[in-house]
Design a protein around this nucleic acid. Structure first.
Lengths: 141, 141
DNA sequence: GTCGCTGCAAAGTATTTGCATAGCC
DNA sequence: GGCTATGCAAATACTTTGCAGCGAC
């Protein structure tokens, strides 16, 4: 998504186009990879030294409503914000907490329809695998 | 799992059989439903007034290693501990945070093998759906 | 000019850790 | 009796909230 498209999206909802929001969005696009709020701030701070963590959280939450990012909660550690729009599973290392994308489709269709059958109104699905990442598996041996 | 089996399992690993552990396990079996650490403590406290939250966490973590419960992290809210041994998806309400079991199989086979193909060593999978629960969907209208 | 957004500080929530003591083995 | 698990308190990590001032529109 371009900066122009972001502007239109924000205007359409009556939200203001602030340098912080533009920059945070740009950072997500540049990273092209999930990141924690802290990591986003780190990059944003280079060009906007006074930016704050609450602002980053507010912007990410807004972007989530806009469908631009997905928030993924990883057991214990910090949540990650993923700019990939396709649903894909994530892997979280039990030992070091590292998060990695898993290259596979999501396969949540049956769960979603089962949930609807139970009277729920699901809008999203997250599949999180846990275990040991490469380096931690090696260290454990 | 019976209390006797728990004892054997603990002994086999060199862990002690304490009243707290037995009671926490019993509570999980009685509940037969996912619960937060706080909810477990609440019930345990009725019979063991001095029981503490750190002890509950320690026991739940131990039981997780023993394969007796699964920890499920729900966005933002407290983690839940699920005594069901079959993998099944969970639904978390975006608005009120309520957690509900989804009655469907897990379907993580492709994700698991993809992860292995990426050199990871997955040992578990959690599928979490988000959206609005019955009452929140009704309130939103 | 108005009103939403930001930055700062502080609060809040969930979970973990340090340490002395109790109690299982 | 030795040593692990417990209970208490405090620390930690992450995220959210309150509020005054700034700046987008």
């Amino acid at each position: 998504m371009s900066a122009t498209e972001l502007q239109e999206l924000l205007h359409a909802r009556g939200n203001r186009v602030t340098p912080q929001r533009v920059l945070i969005h740009e950072t997500l696009v540049e990273l092209d990879r999930h990141a924690t709020a802290e990591q986003v701030l780190e990059r944003v701070s280079k060009r906007l030294p006074n930016a704050s963590l609450p602002t980053v959280y507010a912007a990410l939450e807004l972007f989530e409503e806009l469908g631009l990012v997905r928030r993924v909660d990883t057991a214990g550690g910090a949540a990650i914000w993923d700019p990939r729009t396709d649903g894909h599973p994530h892997f979280v290392c039990d030992r070091c907490g590292a998060v990695e994308d898993v290259d596979a489709p999501l396969e949540a269709a049956r769960a979603l329809s089962a949930a609807r059958g139970q009277g729920l109104h699901p809008s999203g699905a997250e599949l999180v695998l846990t275990g040991l990442c490469r380096s931690c598996a090696r260290a454990a041996r």
